[in-house]
Design a protein around this nucleic acid. Structure first.
Lengths: 211, 211
DNA sequence: AATATTAGCGGACTCGAGTCCGCTTGTCAA
DNA sequence: TTGACAAGCGGACTCGAGTCCGCTAATATT
């Protein structure tokens, strides 16, 4: 499987020269935003609020995070990489145990459903920002990673003979992930009132139909 | 199949009393917006532009259309009902000819893919507005109609024994329509560069897997 | 035809996102 | 240590969406 572990932000001691004040402001902003989001909800907090609460100018805020979506993504960063690493490791293990790729895909989908649910408020903002900007690649990385993972698993399944060889994998990977776009997912959860299990089962059923 | 043909705007001579100037302004605004959208693209035109070009105050514009999405929806109104009526009639005919419900669903999906493609710029704006407003039902009607249609066809197929009776139709109808949300659809068309046929075939394949 | 009622009108206003630019300060080289 | 200069900073500013409210004028009533 392709490994797209491009870190969103170099951590530790990167190449060089990140001015101390800049780095301090970064974490200050993140902590402040996290607290405000917790207290009032993501939608009720605007960028000016965050800047002010952090005791920082709007310009500084926007220098660190070019929009609210990027900020939201940064807040999820550690959990995101944790999720990625965890899944990668798990699939590695499963492979060694001889678990089929389709079974792995099932597990991936199920995990992704839960992950999406937990982070849907932040994901909504991040993804909305992503849609409106073709340039800013960073903000699309999470989706890109999901896409590549699903594609990779399907491709492997194909090679293992679990899936027909003439399937349009590129399309199906996208289609399967569509209902997990945060806005749609949220709609299904809140308006349709689908449970997580129901969504997970439905999606996996859809995949199993490809066999 | 349930018939949700609630007209978005009463036409002809409605209940009573729509002040003449109000009605005139409505069509004036619609014509103006249509022209501006044609000339500069939907995204490049803002509400103030439209108001000004129509020689009307912003307040008036917003009295007629409570946001840009609703305006966009109104611009598609006739084509929308035309599409609905056409599909309903076509499915009626097909039913009489003994064409299976799943085959009808295939045709519906194919037609919907093309419809979505043609109107994606307006649909993007309309749907974005719809997501952010739980109240304003009108703006969600199109999607609601699509959903009910797909659900109805699946339900019928189930009754006819073409689909297993334990399928979670409510979920699948939503899932199948997810990739046709305008923003996602647009992404697939423009970034992934999927052709209409490819999308249509993929979706129909997904449905056929439910059998 | 005169008047009351009330929908309709318009543009100034608020609110949030994101940009700009002149001032400040950390960093690096000498 | 010092000086140059790029990186960083902050807040005033622009831009678009959507709201508000006092004035206007179409319709209904007599």
């Amino acid at each position: 499987m392709t490994n797209n572990q491009l870190p969103l932000e170099p951590i530790g001691s990167p190449a060089k020269s990140v001015r101390r004040d800049a780095a301090e402001n970064r974490v200050l902003i993140l902590q402040t935003a996290e607290k405000l989001f917790e207290d009032h909800g993501v939608d009720a907090v605007n960028m000016a609020d965050i800047a002010q609460a952090a005791g920082v100018g709007k310009g500084t805020l926007y220098r660190r995070f070019s929009n609210k979506g990027e900020l939201c993504l940064a807040l999820m960063d550690s959990q995101m990489t944790e999720f990625q690493d965890g899944m990668l490791a798990r699939m590695q293990t499963l492979s060694e145990q001889g678990v089929s790729k389709l079974e792995q895909l099932d597990q991936f989908i199920d995990a992704l459903v839960h992950f999406t649910d937990i982070h849907s408020p932040l994901l909504c903002v991040a993804q909305r920002a992503g849609l409106l900007e073709g340039e800013n690649e960073a903000i699309q990385l999470p989706h890109f990673w999901q896409y590549m993972t699903v594609k990779g698993l399907m491709r492997s399944a194909q090679i293992d003979g679990e899936l027909a060889s003439n399937l349009d994998i590129d399309y199906f990977a996208d289609a399967i992930l569509s209902p997990l776009q945060a806005d749609i997912f949220r709609y299904q959860r809140q308006v349709r009132e689908f449970s997580l299990d129901r969504i997970s089962a439905g999606l996996r059923h859809l995949v199993s139909g490809l066999k």
